[in-house]
Computed example of a mutant assay.
Amino acid sequence: MSIPAQVLLVFSNVPDLELAKKLARHLLEQRLAACVNILPAVHSMYRWQGALEEGTEVALQIKTTQALYAELEAAIRSMHPYEVPEIIALPLSQGLPAYLDWVRQETNKDRNV
């Protein structure tokens, strides 16, 4: 019996809703994510190159698997305008088993559907 793939929750922010939708669609079409939640109008405050910055961004919550993380990160970086985009992944240690199985199924690149 094989061990189920580790499911991850990946966070990233992008500058606008248009890019958020474009990136989400790309990740879903490539089966790098099972689901992407887009949370518009996040007010971000951060330190960048020695200065305090703030602005509005769009937050993404991306569900994927550990096996796909490197490819997902590369896809985000290739489409992201920031020099150092926020890409943070957390392993999900608990969750509704049926939902976690769904994430695994939807990110299975061998599926024909």
Rank of each mutant, 00 (worst) to 15 (best):
S2T: 01
P4F: 04
A5P: 05
A5W: 05
A5R: 13
V7E: 03
L8S: 00
L9A: 12
F11Y: 12
N13T: 08
V14G: 00
D16W: 06
E18P: 12
E18A: 14
L19A: 05
A20W: 15
K22P: 15
R25G: 09
L28E: 05
E29P: 10
R31P: 00
R31G: 05
R31F: 06
L32E: 14
L32M: 08
L32W: 04
A33K: 01
A33H: 10
A33E: 01
A34C: 02
L39E: 14
M45A: 05
L52D: 13
E53Q: 13
E54L: 07
G55P: 07
T56L: 08
E57I: 10
E57D: 03
Q61C: 03
Q61W: 15
I62N: 11
I62H: 06
Q66I: 03
A67K: 10
A70G: 04
E73L: 08
A74C: 03
A75E: 15
A75R: 02
A75V: 08
I76R: 03
R77T: 06
S78R: 12
M79W: 02
P81E: 01
P81I: 04
E83S: 01
V84I: 13
P85F: 07
E86T: 10
I87D: 02
P91V: 11
L92M: 12
L92F: 07
S93M: 06
P97T: 00
P97N: 10
Y99G: 08
Y99T: 14
W102N: 03
V103M: 05
R104S: 06
E106I: 11
N108V: 09
D110P: 15
